[in-house]
Amino acid sequence: MGPLIPNGIISSDWNYIIAILIGFAFGYILEASGFSSSRKLAGVFYGYDFAVLKVFFTSAVVAVIGLYYMDYLNWIDISQLYVHPTYVWAAIIGGMIMGVGFLAGGFCPGTSLCAVAIGKIDGMVFTLGLMIGIFIFSEFFNSLEPLFERSNLGHITLVDSLNISPYWIIFIFTIIALVAFYFSDWVRSKVKKVFY
């Protein structure tokens, strides 16, 4: 029963090899979906290209449905998976800073790595900026720590926060995603085309 490495079904010696292979597939999919182009990524905010929204929501919906089916069939134990910890204010403020950074720089860390790989100079500059940003954060960690550690809710999921069955959450989430896809196509048909 999965996850395989934490349960010792695959030896952890394979960990890094699997990491490289998974990264390889990740990079390939991102690049092939056009995520190495900042103008394509930014399109989601101006309505001329919704690739980000479509890829993002499709993958999240597929992943969550797949994982819960696997859990249902006892192939994987959902409770053993790593759940990103929830620090409400850190997530909101960090997310807002990232939102501004996204619009200014046109990438996020994963996509900027793809852009670096295919020789986009703006991607390289963005990656450099990321490292400077991390450096700045670390240097000012003492003053940022209250925000960083504040309102820790632990490894909670929407099931804990909303107190409804995960299956209903997934169902609602899927409907939201489908509506978003439909809506995005409608918006795109109204917005002036931008070629890049």
């Binding site: 990740f26 900042s38 993002f56 990103h84 910890p85 620090y87 850190a90 997530a91 403020i93 960090g94 997310g95 807002m96 800073i97 990232m98 939102g99 501004v100 950074g101 996204f102 619009l103 200014a104 720089g105 046109g106 990438f107 996020c108 860390p109 994963g110 900027s112 100079i121 703006d122 991607g123 500059v125 963005f126 990656t127 450099l128 900026g129 990321l130 490292m131 400077i132 940003g133 991390i134 450096f135 700045i136 954060f137 670390s138 940022l144 925000l147 960083f148």
Partner: peptide
């Protein structure tokens, strides 16, 4: 390029505060 650098710095700080980026 200037905006890419600014965006990168902001994203770097934000990703550390939120303990993770978009992915």
């Amino acid at each position: 390029l200037i905006f890419a650098l600014i965006g990168g710095i902001l994203f770097g700080v934000g990703a550390q505060i939120a303990r993770g980026c978009t992915s």
